[in-house]
Nucleic acid binder design. Structure first.
Lengths: 129, 129
DNA sequence: TTTATATATATGATTTTTGGAATATAAGCG
DNA sequence: CGCTTATATTCCAAAAATCATATATATAAA
């Protein structure tokens, strides 16, 4: 279908044009770029949740803040592993921290995450019983 | 916190026991295993969605079935790439196919996916405007 | 200030995921 | 039958994610 002699950039441009044509109201390049960006953002966000350990952490945080030590026990994994998962969640802005003495308490900082987690919890932890 | 002289298996057992204790109603090993399994299932499912291309495909399929060629144009990627993404979705049971002559039409086959996709679409493609 | 506890980070090995290129199959057409 | 179009699959290299181990930092307590 697509001419194999074109460069990848040319092919993408052509394909994008084809996509525009397909959506009869003729999207501009910038609009296509925005759709792609939305998809990227959404996919990146889902990637954060698509990990057993991180997902369990987030599920627990729905019930309220937890210290690293508490999460370590709840998940049955070692401390550096919990901290690594928390670091990722922190960098992505999904959780935030509060210090109390030696302990650091983590809580949810993103409503999208809270919403999705609750839905996923219902889907996978209630329905299937 | 956890004794570094134990084997990983021992540590996991101990940590699991600690987790049980933490949840005052004393979960059995099998119950813990089930929670972990739920988390794994959910994470695996989210992994399928957490990919820009697959996500875009699923978004388009929410509007109704599409042939491979249509998706190729909508996504602006090459045919083998579309087929690879579709193969993954097919193997995971998220989409199903119907043949019509030379064309193969794909459609959503999983209500969980449909539900999540719609929510994600609202979150990332409507809200932020 | 030394020591213990709670948490974080760095490093590196291993595994998974990804995406391109080539090739294969399957259906329709002349 | 050969030819074309639509789709699928295989193979492989590169990139990314994961995980364990070791080490660092920060707070508190003695």
């Amino acid at each position: 279908m697509t001419d194999q002699t074109m460069t990848p950039a040319e092919q993408r441009t052509e394909a994008a044009a084809a996509a525009s044509a397909a959506l009869d109201h003729d999207l501009a390049e910038t609009e296509i770029a925005e759709v792609v960006k939305n998809a990227q953002d959404a996919a990146d966000f889902l990637k954060i949740l698509s990990h057993e350990g991180r997902l369990m952490i987030l599920c627990h945080l729905v019930d309220g803040e937890k210290s690293v030590a508490e999460l370590e026990k709840l998940l049955a994994v070692r401390q550096p592993t919990v901290s690594q998962m928390l670091a990722r969640l922190r960098l992505e802005g999904v959780v935030e921290t509060r210090r109390d003495g030696k302990a650091i308490y983590y809580s949810l900082a993103d409503d999208r995450a809270r919403q999705l987690i609750e839905i996923i919890y219902d889907m996978f932890c209630r329905t299937d019983k």
